[in-house]
Structures are given as C-alpha cells and as structure tokens.
Amino acid sequence: MKPRVAVFKFASCDGCQLQFLNAEDELLRLAGQVDFAYFPEARSRALEGPYDIAFVEGSVTTPADARRIIEVREESRYLITIGACATAGGIQALRNWADIEQYRRAVYPSPEFISTLSTSTPISEHVRVDFEIWGCPIDKYQLLAVTRSLLSGAQPVLPAHSVCIECKRRGNVCVVVARGEPCLGPVTRTGCGALCPSFNRGCYGCFGPANAHNMEAFARLLADQGVTGDEAMRRLRGINGYVRPWRETADALAEKK
C-alpha cells in the first residue's frame, strides 16, 4: 500500500503547498509513489486519517487552529512543516509586536465576528515537529528530496549552511563586497540557489537562519553599511522575523535606536 500523505493549511498564502503542483514533471511520479489522502488544494476527495506523512503549511493564529494542529499531530506518523509560516511564524508574526485589538478594529467592519489569537506562532510551539522545510516559498526539489528520504525510510537531510556557499558555487560576485549591498546571505540558510544575489540583489532571508551564524557580527556589518536602528531591525523582522536568533537581534536593534 502506498503511504498516505496529507497536506494541511493553517495561516498561510498556499504558496508552499503549491510547490507540490509546481513539481510538474515529477508530479505524476510523486502521485505514483504516495496516496494523497487529504490535499484540498489538489483534489476534492478528503479521506480521514491516520496519515503516514502530514505536510503542514502555515502558522497558528486562531484558537481553532491551535486545537486543530493537535489533532493533526495525533493522526500523523511524521509531521513535516513546510515554509516560513509553519516553521517560523511567517510574516504574520509581525502581529506579535503589535496590539491585535487595534488591528481587529481597524481592519474589520464587524470585529466581534473575528476570533483570533494575539500571536502567530510556528507549529513547533504547539506540537512535536519531525522535520522542518524552510523557505518562502519552499524549494520544490527540497520538498521532493525530503519526501523521497521518508519513502526510503531514511532520515531527511537538507543543508543548513549559509547562502554564501551556494552563491560562491554559482560563481556570483559578492554584492556586499563589490557593491556595498546589505545582504542577509551570510546568516541565512541555503536552499534557494542564492536566487537574489544571482540577480545582483541582497538576500532577504527567506530560508531563515543558517545553523552557524554570528548575529552580533552581522549587525555590526549592517551598521558599517549605514543600516542601523529600525531599518536594520526591519531587515531581520521580515518573513522569518519571529525565529529566535533574528528576533533577538532585531529586538536589540529596535531598542538601541
């Protein structure tokens, strides 16, 4: 019997689960390897659990989702988060520094119907996560590689070093050194193929923190480039802003101004 796979959505834009469909050439082969028991974006058939692999997209932002993720965990053998929202809280974690009541009143004409939490938190703050795939969006080849490892009964492995290594493998000229461009590459996890620096732009940090990083030294580098205070804080408090090393550095930068 083929492994039963489920794809769940929490607070997110759907871009990460769309990477399954973006697999294009590989999609039919993937469908031959697994049974998509629950994948509402791809098919209307929705089968009940238990599932062998649950891919979870999105962060937890409502009381209902906080309960639902516990159910997902209970019915899944492996729970894999896909993307910045599920893994780090996403861009919507900006609410974690704001007054949610004020947002609710400002945005919605009938705020009494809105049931929300005051925070956006990653899945790992709620349940045990077996593996995290970073990125905004995730890379489809990483998604397929992790899936393949699970099908083989092997522990998935994804590189967690800096974007710089990938950038240099591609033969790019460093945008920091040759252009003075602020770039999160030195502290960001690889996985995108050094996409932005390959187009002469600084890295935005879509894949979250690299496993080896020195945020104090990086904050000094930004300052040397004239990026200080709130501007420096905003560089880090983006898509992956709520993940700890970036959160702490951004908080310190915001206080310092």
Partner: peptide, 27 residues
Amino acid sequence: CLSCANCTMVCPTCFCHTVVDQEELDG
C-alpha cells in the same frame, strides 16, 4: 567572524567538499 565560509570559497587552494546522494523520486 560571520562563519559564512566566503574566505574558503574564494581561496584558490581550499578543497573541502561534501558528498551527497540525490535520489530520483521513484527510488
């Protein structure tokens, strides 16, 4: 030090490498 590895990447003699297995989806 950022530990970003740029020095070793641009070094003309640094030869460290990793070897990874990339499986096709059908195994």
